[in-house]
């Protein structure tokens, strides 16, 4: 197994477990405060990892244009991304919200079709059909969230 695939699996583990911890935190703390604490923690941990592995100078090696893109990413990931997701978790629960988020690659394929003019093959269409059916199965069963 390649290191890239192993790292993607570690990412799935981190996000999957982290979502449940966030949901648990939101029993007593509002989503807006949770997102500030969590992003603060993420910035601290990643900052320490970056400085210890690449050195402080690594922060200076990013072009201004790239910084602009990263700023957009920061807004998308933490405002319209995690802040909205935490509100979604609080209202719909992890069991409903997590599979919706997991269907993201389906949207990525749709973007590739609409904007890049790609033509999906039969296997891709079959996978997309499975995702849509799976999401429909989950959405029609709303009685699991107890709190």
């Amino acid at each position: 197994m390649s290191l890239g695939i192993l790292l993607a699996m570690v990412a799935a583990l981190g996000w999957g477990a982290g979502d449940v911890l966030v949901r648990r935190a939101m029993f007593t703390v509002p989503p807006e405060l949770v997102v500030v604490f969590v992003v603060g923690m993420v910035a601290t941990v990643l900052g320490i990892v970056t400085i210890s592995t690449e050195g402080l100078a690594a922060f200076g090696g990013v072009e201004v244009a790239s910084l602009g893109i990263i700023a957009v990413m920061g807004a998308l990931a933490w405002v319209t991304g995690n802040l909205f997701y935490f509100h979604g978790l609080r209202r719909a629960g992890v069991t409903l919200a997590a599979p919706i988020l997991g269907a993201g690659p389906l949207f990525a394929i749709a973007l590739a079709v609409v904007f890049a003019g790609e033509r999906p093959n039969l296997l891709t269409v079959g996978g997309a059909f499975a995702v849509v059916i799976g999401v429909a199965v989950i959405l029609t069963d709303r009685n699991r969230v107890l709190r």
Binding site: G47, M73, G74
Partner: peptide, 8 residues
Amino acid sequence: SYEALFGL
């Protein structure tokens, strides 16, 4: 790291 700092 930068993404998290902008997010913060």
